[in-house]
Write a protein that binds this DNA or RNA. Structure first.
Length: 217
DNA sequence: CGTTCGATGCACT
DNA sequence: GTGCATCGAACGT
């Protein structure tokens, strides 16, 4: 399956944001392919967006945001989580799309092991009914739900920062999957820039993360 | 169902 | 020293 070309990312970020829903994030580690359908993302656009890491201007950490589109921007947060973004727009225009949730489709056993969760058939990581999923896939709906959870399941860390999503073992592919409908809401887990409705979800999808917007003072 | 809170490390002021 | 683009356990209703 072919990865999306750089031209896909070299466009207005909100267009890329919406069209990433249904695409497939893949990580190949030592020949072990693990993948999930993207069902929830958020846009972070430019130095004028107070929630974007580019808001303070260029720094060592946010440098990938200023780089070429189609690269990964991975950073470490809260002392324990890695978060992965796809860099968008032309070089010099700092913007990216945060990947917040996946529906697991390949390497579920590997994801379960990396997450360290128990596969309790009756519990919260159990299979769930879902339409629009490839036949035969096991849908463990919480396995890759949340930006910190999915990087753990896919073994994404700072080694993948600046990886080329069009050619490297961390890639985003088009499998011809399209959501029936997407929903735009305010972004989640931030204290500033909550007025922008730049979170895009596969409407009604069970894999969307359960986090709620924080109340502003 | 809801809210609160501790874990944990680093970039940035 | 402060504040995170989080998570899940532990509580309250």
């Amino acid at each position: 399956m072919k990865a999306l070309p750089a031209s896909f990312y070299n466009r207005p970020t909100l267009n890329v944001t919406e069209e990433l829903i249904g695409k497939v994030l893949v990580h190949d580690v030592r020949g072990r392919r693990v993948a999930g359908i993207i069902v929830e993302v958020e846009a972070y656009i430019g130095e004028s967006d107070p929630a974007c890491h580019a808001a303070p201007g260029p720094t060592k950490r946010n440098a990938p945001l200023y780089g070429p589109p189609g690269r990964a921007y991975v950073y470490f947060n809260y002392g324990m989580h890695y978060l992965v973004n796809a860099v968008t727009e032309k070089e010099g225009s700092p913007a990216a799309v945060l990947i917040r949730a996946l529906e697991p489709v390949e390497g579920v056993d590997t994801m379960v092991r990396r997450r360290g969760v128990k596969t309790d058939p009756g519990g919260r990581f159990s299979t769930a009914s879902s339409e629009n999923r490839p036949p035969g896939s096991v849908f463990t709906r919480r396995l890759c739900s949340g930006p910190g959870n999915l990087t753990k399941a896919l073994a994404i860390d700072l080694r993948q920062n600046r990886s080329d999503l069009t050619t490297s073992r961390l890639r985003i592919e088009d499998h011809g999957i399209t959501p029936d409908k997407v929903t735009w809401t305010p972004r989640v887990g931030i204290r500033v820039g909550t007025d922008r409705e730049w979170r895009c979800c596969w409407a009604g999808h069970a894999g969307v993360s359960g986090r709620v917007a924080r109340v502003k003072d």
